[in-house]
Design a binder for these strands. Structure first.
Length: 121
DNA sequence: GGCATGACATTGC
DNA sequence: AGCAATGCCATGC
């Protein structure tokens, strides 16, 4: 299986084994989200194996450096609304990124069911 | 080790 | 459908 990126379950396992910390697991998983897809904070937390730690996902992403390669913009709220909508800095940037990937956003919200990423197990 | 903080999720009104 | 209140958990001090 020549996948260029680790599978979601592998990340969850690595985190469970303590090989990587929660934050690193978040970064790795977010990095797996394909172009044009999105995921809710809770969804990311669940895939890592820590359902309920949705807030920490945001906390981890907030710690990302400006020029990071992690596609943090593909992570939104579970209902498809932009958490950073009120942020004059990252908000517009996130919306622009998503739209550039083909996701139609109206009033800082988009159809999550239509763009939600579902790892193929 | 305990306390306060926070890019969320859910439920109830 | 929209708003308010409550629960959850990793981080940092």
């Amino acid at each position: 299986v020549a996948t260029d990126a680790p599978e979601a379950w592998q990340i969850a396992e690595a985190h469970a084994d303590g090989a990587i910390g929660f934050r690193d697991a978040v970064y790795a998983l977010v990095g797996c989200i394909p172009h044009g897809k999105a995921l809710g904070y809770g969804g990311v937390a669940s895939l890592i194996g820590r359902p309920g730690a949705a807030r920490q996902v945001g906390y981890a992403l907030a710690a990302l450096p400006p020029g990071t390669e992690v596609p943090w913009w593909r992570v939104t709220r579970s209902d498809g609304s932009i958490a950073l909508a009120g942020d004059p800095n990252r908000g517009p940037a996130q919306v622009a990124r998503l739209q550039a990937e083909g996701i139609a956003i109206v009033e800082h919200r988009f159809d999550m069911d239509r763009h939600k990423w579902v790892p193929h197990a």
